[in-house]
């Protein structure tokens, strides 16, 4: 049986882990490699690094962080943020990343998603979709770390990236990010039920119940969270125990 995954996420800016609210108000909180090791020891199922550095030079720090993390951790590592071409993907994979998460890149170069999937296997291509609910109830896709609104509707974009070779979708609700109000179950379920690739729910976890809701109500294959694990509100072990007690199959 396939177990539901708990994935701690580290937003990395200029070599530091940061965390914001609604994608803004960033605060430095720790060293990414040390934090990765802590999560490994707590039994994380995967780890996700999102590089939100503003400049290209600062981004090369990420390769080094990935290498150091891969040296210490025996678990799958997804890396995303600021990827521009196939060469960037190759370099990250060589450094020890197992999956690459694409967002702005995918919106701008759908055919490159296909090429990347062909070249590196679709299992290693994750498309990250950042969405916001608009006043009319539709969900719109945003790029550039939430700064640019696109005309894409979330579900149709999810289906498009699936057709073009994405192996997984990382779905983040910008409305919920950092608020602790729980995942946006409506859009999570809608996408998870309408694509055949796995969907990871992200954005808004504040309580352990939210993780359970993400997989049971939202039908997500995994749940991603940052703040509750970073700030030590809950450890990953505690989260997993809670999920198990709530009837979710997890790796303990």
């Amino acid at each position: 049986m396939l177990k539901k995954r708990i994935i701690p996420c580290l937003d990395v800016k200029d070599g530091y882990v940061v965390k914001g609210i609604n994608f803004l108000k960033l605060k430095k909180i720790s060293d990414p490699v040390e934090q990765a090791q802590i999560y490994q020891d707590q039994g994380a199922d995967e780890l996700c690094f999102l590089d939100i550095s503003a400049s290209n030079e600062k981004r090369s720090i990420m390769i080094d962080i990935v290498k150091k993390t891969a040296d210490r951790c025996f678990m799958p590592l997804t890396v995303g943020g600021g990827i521009k071409d196939l060469e960037d993907i190759r370099n990250l994979l060589k450094a020890g990343a197992d999956k690459i998460s694409l967002n702005t890149f995918a919106v701008n170069n759908l055919n490159l998603v296909e090429k990347a999937a062909e070249k590196f296997g679709n299992q290693c291509i994750v498309v990250a979709i950042d969405v916001k609910k608009s006043a009319n109830g539709n969900y719109t896709v945003f790029t550039h770390g939430g700064r640019n609104e696109t005309k894409l509707e979330a579900l149709s974009w999810a289906k498009t990236v699936e057709e073009h070779g994405a192996g997984e979708i990382l779905l983040t609700s910008m409305d919920r990010d950092g608020t602790g109000k729980g995942f946006d179950i409506e859009i999570t379920k809608k996408i998870a039920d309408n694509v055949s690739i796995p969907v990871i729910a992200s954005g808004g976890v504040g309580k352990l119940e939210h993780l359970v809701d993400g997989v049971i109500k939202g039908n997500a294959s995994g749940v991603l969270a940052a703040s509750i694990f970073h700030y030590g509100t809950f450890s990953i072990c505690e989260a997993k125990k809670f999920m198990k007690e709530s009837g979710v199959l997890v790796r303990l």
Partner: peptide, 29 residues
């Protein structure tokens, strides 16, 4: 179920297997 299969699964290993798969615990992932 979702395809690709991505994640942790328990492998049911049959009885009396040889090395190198002979001492893997039943509650493996």
């Amino acid at each position: 179920w979702p395809i690709p299969n991505i994640g942790w699964c328990n492998v049911k290993i049959r009885n009396n297997v040889e090395q190198p798969f002979n001492n893997i615990s039943d509650d493996n992932s």
